[in-house]
Amino acid sequence: MSITNLLENWSDFRQQHPSDDRPHREYKWAMSIDLDSCTGCNACSVACYAENNLPVVGKEKFAHGHSHHWIRIERYWDNDGREFADQGAQFLPMLCQHCESAPCETVCPVGATNHTADGLNSQVYNRCVGSRYCNANCPYKARYFNWYDYPTTDNVWPEPMNQQLNPDVTVRGKGVMEKCTFCVQRLTVAKSNARSAGRSVLDGEVQTACQQVCPTGAISFGNLVDPLAKVGKQWMKQQVELNKDKQAKDAEEKAAKLRGYRILEGLRTYPSVMYLEQLRESAI
C-alpha cells in the first residue's frame, strides 16, 4: 500500500545526496583530469564519437551549434594583452560532470535524468520528451540535444558506416537530450563480470573510452569508494571532498600546494570530476 509505505519510510524518503552520513555503498564513479598532462590532442573526443555513436553533424550544423561532442576540448588563453600567448594555451576537456547534486535532474519534467546508485547522472533517451530544461539548467552546458534525426533523415551514417555503430549504445533519434555517460555500457559489463565472480570491480578493470586512449594518461577514472582506486587516492591527496562546495584549497593559504579543484563548485553542484591545475615553470 503506497500510503503505508510512504508513512513507514518517511525518514528514508527525506534523505538526500550528497550527504556525509549516507555515503555511496558499493560504487561511486568519479574522474580526475590532470590539466598539466592534457595536451589538447582531441583523441578523447574522437574516442567518444567512436564508442558512443555520436553523429558527425557537418559544417552547416556545427556552425549552428548543433555539434555533439560529449567530451569537448576547450582551449583558453590567458595572455591578457601580452603580444604573444607565450605560456601556451590551457586545454580543458569538458564532459558531463556527473554532479552529485545535479541541476539537470530536478528540472526534467519526465524524470528522464536521475541519479543512479553508482553516483552517475543517468539520461534515459527513450523517456526524454525534449523539453531541454536540463540543458538550460546545466552550468557546464555539457548536454547535447538531437536537433535533427541524424540516423534517418540526416543520414549521418550512410551505408556501410552504420556498421560501425556500437550496439551497446542506443542511436539517438531526433528530439532527445544526450550527454556523457561515463561509458555506462562498459561499467555495466564490468559490474556484471565482477558480480559473477563474486567481487566488486577492481581499479583499472574498467576504463572509459576517453581515458583508454588518452596518450598522456591525463584522465583517471574509477570508483571513489574503493580505497585502492587511483582516482580516490588522487581526490584524497588533493583534499577534494565530494560533499563539500568549499575545499581545503579554497580555505587556507597552506593548502596552496594542492592543485585539485572542481569547476564552478560555488554553484553547489558537487561534480564528480576533479581537475588538477595546469602548471607552468616560473624559471623561464
Partner: peptide, 23 residues
C-alpha cells in the same frame, strides 16, 4: 517547444504500465 511532442503524455501523471511517474 518539445523535441518529441509525440511523447508529451509522459508529462501527465497517470497510472501507466511503465510504472513511471513524471518528475
Amino acid at each position: 517547444h518539445l523535441g518529441r511532442l509525440w511523447m508529451v503524455y509522459y508529462v501527465m501523471p497517470y497510472p501507466n504500465e511503465r510504472w513511471v511517474w513524471p518528475n
